[in-house]
Design a protein around this nucleic acid. Structure first.
Lengths: 215, 215
DNA sequence: CACTGTGAATTGATTCACAGCT
DNA sequence: AGCTGTGAATCAATTCACAGTG
């Protein structure tokens, strides 16, 4: 019933709507129109209406969307209403920063386990979450019902760590390592800083095609 | 002549090809076919051929692509051949981690300036790059010819900081703040950790539509 | 012969335009 | 009257299928 014909692009926009809707609901703004949502998100009103309509009509014609209802519905669609547990592997500088940020910010996605191989780090904690050895990953993730993995290990360790995550019952991975993971049955989203920066360079006058060295 | 009909998606894949090609060239593998490239990147051979063909034919029919030539050509297309300077604003935990990583890793995109508003941080350095007050941003970026900005400030400061970046001559921004920047004439790429994690939850059994609280 | 390069076909996402509620 | 919800049209990206070439 789920995961059918709904564009992936639409799903990636739901958290944006969620953010705006819950901010407004918290500020006691009860209603927002697709036009206003468009204004605040930089998307088009039609796209917003279409995205929301994929999941059933929760607006009121002639009026708009109830911000409180909207935020609850989106949270439910994403499965955030009960709280989703995540584990982060590789507590280097980036991993540490992400862990701090996620542990402090998100109530809906909670990092409940941290793993590393460095004996110096194991046993220390990040904002109250203890760093465990990677050898504990499968067992701990299974015990805690962790569903999301955040991968901030070196590229060379990425594939094997991802496999452990799968064994531990993780169903979706946010991969920061510059490596393409091959892992069936697990949803993988890559964030690669090098790719982002390098492709950004293209949109810069630095790339203004000075006409090649010959060859 | 540039920025014409080439799909943005293709440009975002160039750094992937660049990585593989330069790794192979460094390992003295002189030639790679689109099929092998597909194998290593998880993309399709046709897509790779099409992407590369947008920028002119640099393969040899019946043979494949010269890895060394390929990496040089892509670097040139992206404008990386001369080195591109970047500035990072907001040296919190995430900013610090990204700065460390970028300063140490990338030769082609160099972070040459760091900015923050915190007097405690100003004057300290990250791997040899001194943190300056944001009040110096415009002047320093102009002086150094910085073209890329990395934005790791709180959401509330994102828009105003982005405007300073534009004033400083920055042409492309990698924005980690959860805010939609409105800024004409500057290419903006957003990375929003909350969005990534929340949309990941959808692909997890956590979201298995237990049928709502009614209303 | 084995590969690249590329028009044509397809698939997917966005935008348009309007019908349908409240 | 003013908004949502949605089929139809457009636009963009991917995949197909094969012609072209070293």
């Amino acid at each position: 019933m789920r995961r059918t014909n709904i564009p992936e692009a639409a799903i990636r926009r739901l958290p944006i709507y969620l953010r705006v809707a819950s901010e407004l609901a918290a500020a006691d703004v009860p209603i927002i129109s697709s036009a206003e949502l468009a204004e605040r998100t930089g998307l088009s009103p039609e796209q917003i209406r279409k995205d929301l309509a994929y999941f059933g009509a929760f607006g009121t014609r002639g009026v708009g969307y109830d911000t409180s209802l909207l935020s609850r519905r989106i949270a439910r669609i994403l499965g955030l209403h009960r709280g989703v547990r995540a584990a982060l592997v590789g507590v280097g500088h980036l991993g540490h920063a992400l862990a701090r940020y996620s542990i402090s910010q998100h109530k809906d996605i909670q990092i409940t386990a941290l793993f590393d191989t460095d004996p110096e780090k194991i046993g220390t904690d990040v904002m109250g979450v203890r760093i465990q050895p990677v050898s504990q990953l499968v067992e701990t993730c299974r015990q805690q019902g962790v569903k999301i993995g955040i991968l901030t290990v070196p590229a060379s360790a990425a594939q094997s760590t991802a496999e452990l995550m799968k064994q531990g019952g993780i169903e979706a991975i946010l991969n920061f390592a510059p490596a393409k993971l091959k892992l069936d049955g697990v949803f993988i989203q890559n964030i690669d800083l090098t790719i982002e920066l390098q492709s950004l360079a293209y949109y810069t006058s630095a790339s203004e095609e000075d006409p090649g060295e010959g060859e």
